[in-house]
Computed example of a mutant assay.
Amino acid sequence: MAPSRIAIVTGASSGIGAATARKLAEAGYRVVLTARREDRIEALAKELNDAGHQATAYTLDVTDRAAVDEFATAFKTVAVLVNNAGGALGADPVATGDPADWRTMYETNVIGTLNVTQALLPKLVASGDGTVVVVSSTAGLGTYEGGAGYVAAKHGEHVLAETLRLEIVGQPVRVIEIAPGMVKTDEFALTRFGGDEEKAAKVYQGVAEPLTANDVADTIAWTVTRPHHVNVDLLVLRPRAQASNTKVHREL
């Protein structure tokens, strides 16, 4: 694969995004790392470049449409777009959930994915062999108590991917959705619970082997590197200990 092939990863400052950038760089792509935290993506770009890969960092808030549109002008063609930026806030029931948290989750997970996909879709088509990856969640396929805000956002992201696939069929662009279940990263649960380490730890308590960011990144890289005529529409990825969003084996 020519190193000039560009793969853009949003939310690349940590977790699944950073791991995916590493995997795609190893696969021969020139990776463009985007996130709001400039120091994180600059450090990752340096790590990848020092290892002999090609990587560029670009500070970007995916909810800022003007900034996204400006970012898109830097490219004539793009081979891969990984829409990974997102996240969860809170675990309150519908009756007491914070509307501001709901709005933030919708803006980041859904509108952010929409912004970047719309801005880069012509570049993906122009590549002659483009791939859009949407990193959603099993929350986009089934609900659970205390998760309605995040579930609603991820359902929206799931429908965005599903509808886009219908609308651009016949164009040289695949739409792949990766829906991970329980993934233990450094920040996801901690952010969800406002920095409360005790609450964050309880999410994974007793689960012998939750998924890791590398597990998800490896799966993303596998789908992206399939022959161009192969489209993995939807891949659900869970640890063996998790049978559903509400059924998890815990060794207490």
Rank of each mutant, 00 (worst) to 15 (best):
A35H: 03
N83Q: 04
M105R: 02
A25K: 02
D186V: 13
R40C: 06
E251K: 06
T10I: 11
A148Y: 03
V232N: 10
D196E: 01
D215V: 04
G52T: 09
T20K: 07
L121T: 11
G195M: 02
A27L: 09
R22C: 06
M1P: 05
G195S: 04
A12V: 14
P93W: 05
H53F: 15
V230D: 12
T138L: 05
Y106Q: 04
F75V: 13
V159G: 07
K23T: 02
R238T: 07
A67K: 01
V135I: 14
L60K: 10
P3C: 02
R37Y: 01
A19Q: 10
G195P: 05
L89V: 11
T34F: 05
I220Y: 07
T77I: 14
V175Y: 07
N83P: 01
E209G: 12
G195W: 00
A85W: 07
V134Y: 01
N245Y: 08
L160I: 15
Y204A: 10
L124M: 12
V110P: 00
A126V: 09
L60I: 15
G149V: 11
T20E: 09
L211D: 00
E198S: 14
S4K: 06
V68T: 06
E145A: 15
A51H: 03
N84M: 07
D218Q: 13
H155I: 06
E47D: 12
G149K: 04
A161M: 01
A213I: 07
G194R: 09
V169R: 15
N109V: 04
V133T: 12
G28W: 08
A74I: 05
T108Q: 09
V151S: 10
R174L: 02
T131D: 14
P180T: 10
L121S: 01
A200I: 02
T10F: 00
D69T: 12
G86H: 02
V173E: 08
H228I: 14
T219F: 07
L24C: 09
A241F: 04
A7W: 00
I220W: 06
T108N: 06
A51I: 05
S13T: 11
T20A: 11
N109W: 01
L33G: 00
Q205N: 12
A45P: 03
N84D: 13
T225L: 10
K154E: 11
V216I: 15
I41D: 01
A221W: 13
D233G: 11
Q242E: 12
L166I: 13
S136R: 02
V94H: 02
G170T: 08
K123N: 08
A189W: 01
A25E: 02
N109F: 03
N84R: 13
A74E: 09
P210T: 13
L33K: 09
L60G: 00
H229T: 11
D92L: 14
L89T: 09
A161T: 12
